[in-house]
Simulated assay, not measured.
Amino acid sequence: MTSLRLGTRRSALAMTQSGHVADALRAAGHEVELVEIVTEGDTNRASLASMGGTGVFATALREAMHAGEIDLAVHSLKDLPTAPAPGLVVAAIPARVDPRDALCARDGLTLGELGEGAVIGTGSPRRRAQLAALGLGLEFRDIRGNLGTRLAMVGSDEGQLDAVVLASAGLTRLGLREQITELLEPIQMLPAPGQGALAVECREGDEQVLAALHLLDHEDTRAAVTAERGVLAELEAGCAAPIGALAEIVDDVDGLVISLRAVVTATDGSADLRRSITGPMAEAEDLGRRLARTLVADGAPELADLQATHPSTASEHVQ
């Protein structure tokens, strides 16, 4: 039995995600203490991109690990930069929850029922660009805040939003799936690389912690998200680049393989570029990088700013 200090952000979603990992470790016979860590992403209401992007949620947790204040941390994998953190390792990627995006609209409406001029709240340039590309005449407003805050903006006089688009996984983990009025299929909107998956990170060389986390690792999920993040790594994509990717493990004539799709969308939704590739699970990262090179060769850099770190079409912020 190992005694473990698990660092977590204070948000309801982070606490829930960390709680799931803690419960799995306890079931395996380990003692787990949750240690709350405050990150800049929790206290700063500016746009995520303007604070430096996805890594803003991971920095404080990683600093606490380096300082020996905690032994491990749970991240939403899509919030982790693709570059490895010196001295740390993603020791476990548990089985993934539904990676799709979800529409939460007033009056139970679907995307097609909202109508031209409907106002959608999202802080994601990826979601905004792909929604605009559908040609439904939607309008957009940048928003920040936890899931409860965002959901409360829908249909309210203060928020003046007809709908928000959120990750299905977060809603599921918080028991809020009844708020979903439509799950957006990948043909409409490819999710962020790693969406729906968790990453459990610890210090390199911490053999007791590594051994404890090994049983939580899910081979198929790790292969899928490794391929998706390979696309981002090869493109050296910025936090506001309108890129989506989804890998699935499928049964082929030669056994299980990775089927990977990716999209780069013009920020205004005027055009998009979708490509796909299939290959062995053992070549997950290489598949992602090969698909990224195909996107580049076919014009992705001319279509969108792949290194974008601020949404170029940002509108007013709703607090």
Rank of each mutant, 00 (worst) to 15 (best):
Val90Met: 09
Pro94Gln: 00
Ala95Asp: 14
Arg96Leu: 12
Val97Thr: 15
Asp98Val: 00
Arg100Trp: 05
Ala102Gly: 02
Leu103Thr: 06
Cys104Gln: 07
Cys104Thr: 10
Cys104His: 03
Ala105Asp: 03
Arg106Asn: 03
Asp107Arg: 13
Leu109Tyr: 01
Leu109Phe: 00
Leu109Lys: 14
Thr110Arg: 15
Leu111Asp: 04
Gly115Val: 08
Gly115Phe: 10
Gly117Asn: 07
Val119Gln: 08
Arg126Asp: 06
Arg126Ala: 11
Arg126Pro: 03
Arg127Met: 10
Arg127Ala: 03
Arg127Gln: 13
Arg128Asp: 02
Leu131Gly: 06
Leu131Val: 06
Leu131Cys: 07
Ala132Asn: 05
Leu134Ile: 03
Gly135Asp: 13
Gly135Cys: 13
Gly135His: 10
Leu136Glu: 06
Glu139Arg: 15
Arg141Gly: 01
Asp142Pro: 00
Arg144Ile: 11
Asn146Tyr: 04
Asn146Asp: 14
Leu147Asp: 11
Gly148Trp: 03
Gly148Tyr: 05
Thr149Asn: 11
Arg150Leu: 09
Ala152Tyr: 04
Gly155Leu: 04
Ser156Pro: 08
Asp157Phe: 10
Glu158Gln: 07
Gly159Trp: 00
Gln160Leu: 14
Gln160Val: 02
Gln160Phe: 03
Leu161Ile: 03
Asp162Gln: 06
Ala163Thr: 08
Ser168Ala: 15
Ser168Leu: 12
Ser168Arg: 14
Ala169Lys: 12
Gly170Cys: 11
Gly170Thr: 12
Thr172Gln: 09
Gly175Ala: 04
Glu178Phe: 01
Gln179Ala: 15
Ile180Met: 14
Ile180His: 10
Ile180Lys: 09
Leu183Gln: 13
Glu185Ser: 14
Glu185Val: 11
Pro186Ile: 15
Pro186Gly: 15
Ile187Ala: 15
Gln188Pro: 00
Gln188His: 12
Met189Leu: 15
Leu190Asn: 03
Pro193Tyr: 02
